[in-house]
C-alpha cells in the first residue's frame, strides 16, 4: 500500500506553533477558555499545544480530555469502538469558551458526538474546533474547523494518520495511505 508522508516533524512543529499563536490571538490570557482534547488521539495534540502555550507565557490554562464513546451515533452498528477512554474535565464549562482539539477531522461525526457529550459539564458560551489535519470534502455533517493545521485532499478509502515520537513512532509525522478504490 502506498504510504506518503504529508508532514514531517519540523513542519508539524511549525504548524502547531502557528495554531498556538492563533489561539493566543483569539483567547488572550485564556481566562475564560477551556481546551478540550478529544479522546483518543486529540489528547496528543492538546499536550503539544499546552506546552507551546506555556512557553509563550500562558500559564493559567484550563484543559481537559473528553471521551465520546457513549455519545457516538454508530453504537450497535457493529464496528464502532466499545471501549471508552478517560474523560477528565475538572472545571464546570457553564459560560466558558471551549476549544475542541483533535488530530484529524474527517466525517465530523466525532465532533458532533463531542458537542453532545460536553453538555454534561454545563453549557459553554461557545465551542470552537481546532484540528491538525482537515480532510477536505469528506464531511458527512455540516461541521467546519475554526483553526486548521493543514488541509488534505483524500478519498473515502484512504487513511490519514498522525504519529508521535512520544508514543512509539520514529518521529512526529503525518501520513496518507492510499486505500483501494472501486
Amino acid at each position: 500500500m502506498d504510504k506518503k508522508k504529508l508532514l514531517d516533524a519540523r513542519s508539524i512543529s511549525i504548524t502547531l506553533n502557528r495554531l498556538a499563536q492563533q489561539l493566543i490571538e483569539n483567547h488572550g490570557d485564556f481566562q475564560n477558555t477551556v481546551l478540550i482534547g478529544l479522546q483518543t488521539r486529540g489528547i496528543y495534540v492538546l499536550e503539544k499545544l499546552v506546552a507551546i502555550l506555556n512557553a509563550n507565557g500562558v500559564n493559567k490554562l484550563a484543559s481537559g480530555t473528553l471521551d465520546i464513546t457513549f455519545f457516538r451515533d454508530d453504537f450497535r452498528r457493529r464496528d464502532s469502538p466499545l471501549e471508552p477512554s478517560m474523560t477528565k474535565i475538572d472545571v464546570l464549562l457553564e459560560g466558558k469558551k471551549v476549544v475542541f482539539i483533535d488530530d484529524v477531522l474527517y466525517t465530523g461525526r466525532s465532533v458532533r458526538s463531542a458537542m453532545d457529550a460536553v453538555q454534561s459539564f454545563g453549557r459553554p458560551s461557545e465551542i470552537e474546533l481546532l484540528v491538525l489535519i482537515d480532510r477536505r470534502f469528506s464531511r458527512e455533517l455540516p461541521i467546519q474547523p475554526d483553526y486548521v493545521g493543514e488541509q488534505v485532499d483524500s478519498l473515502a478509502g484512504d487513511r490519514v494518520s498522525v504519529e508521535w515520537q512520544d508514543i512509539n513512532a520514529s518521529e512526529d509525522a503525518v501520513y496518507l495511505e492510499k486505500g483501494i478504490h472501486e
Binding site: 464513546t69 457513549f70 455519545f71 466499545l82 471508552p84 478517560m86 453532545d116 453538555q119 459539564f121
Partner: peptide, 22 residues
C-alpha cells in the same frame, strides 16, 4: 472488560449531568 467500562461509567455518574444516550 466490564471493569474497564464501569470505570468510565463511574466518571459519567459523577458529572453534573449524569446521563449518556447510548
Amino acid at each position: 472488560l466490564i471493569f474497564d467500562t464501569a470505570k468510565q461509567f463511574k466518571e459519567v455518574i459523577n458529572r453534573p449531568i449524569k446521563k449518556v444516550p447510548s
